[in-house]
Amino acid sequence: MQIDAYDREYMCSGHVGCAGCGATIAMRLFMKAMGEKTIMVLPACCWSVIAGPYPQSAMKIPVIHTAFETGGATASGVRAALDMKGDTETSVVTWAGDGGTFDIGFQSLSGAVERNEDFIYVCYDNEAYMNTGIQRSSSTPYGAWTTTTPGQDWKRLRKKNIVEVLVAHRIPYVATANIAFPEDLIRKAQKAKSIKGSKFLHIFASCPTGWRIPSEMSVKIARMAVQTNIFPLYEVEDGIHYTINHKPKEYLVREYFKLQGRFRHLTDKDLDQIQTMVDEDWGLLLKKAGERS
């Protein structure tokens, strides 16, 4: 692909993300779209570490680290201050992990978007508490092993559909994106930047360490999540208008599952059940988008 317009770089080398870290790819691509007039709020997540220890920063924009559950609130404050200073040009972005979004930060997020604060909330989703050592979150998918869903006690509950929850807030823009689809991701970030009010981007960001995959597989696995309909690429405007951005060919979910150590324990029967769940979710999405399968 050619993304010549995005030569600009706002993330530095030398950050301490794991080899092949999807969250760093997400950040790098996202920032290429955002540009220098961006202030970033970083609630506790992998990126709290990746961004570097004092006195270092891996980011070339202003960043404020903040407590785990405050992504929405802190951004509201930054936005309010900028508005008071007459700075409407600078975008405020909250960059949070799935734990900080789906779980502990959910109230703050919901509060901020209910107020339709003018900011972009990005959840980079690696489907567990990776920074603390792979504990399950409400984003952890059905079937996954984590250190708190160990052995035969793997997670037998669905992943929370955070996108639909945000859609229900009727905010101007909600979209999913994926590190394996850089052009789509960059386009959505730019679109979010151009819209006033609350925007939510859900970026699928693979985690080689936590998913038990080789580092060089992280983009491929992320791509397969889209190809298998596990993580569809779509966007919703004003809580009503659904657009599905990518209609994949019918790959089987087992292709995705069998490559990852976190799903190693699943039997064919389990995988069949997961396929049914994925098909059902995809069908629901198609209905919402007013499309046929």
């Binding site: 202030i39 709020v41 404020i64 903040t66 407590a67 559950e69 405050t70 929405g72 609130a73 802190t74 951004a75 509201s76 404050g77 930054v78 936005r79 309010a80 201050a81 900028l82 008071m84 200073k85 109230q107 703050s108 919901s110 509060g111 901020a112 209910e114």
Partner: peptide, 19 residues
């Protein structure tokens, strides 16, 4: 805001942004 926790967190953001 929707809670005291967010209340003070919002001020962390605002004060850090220079007001």
């Amino acid at each position: 805001v929707e809670s005291e926790h967010s209340c003070l967190a919002a001020l962390v953001g605002a004060q850090s942004a220079g007001v």
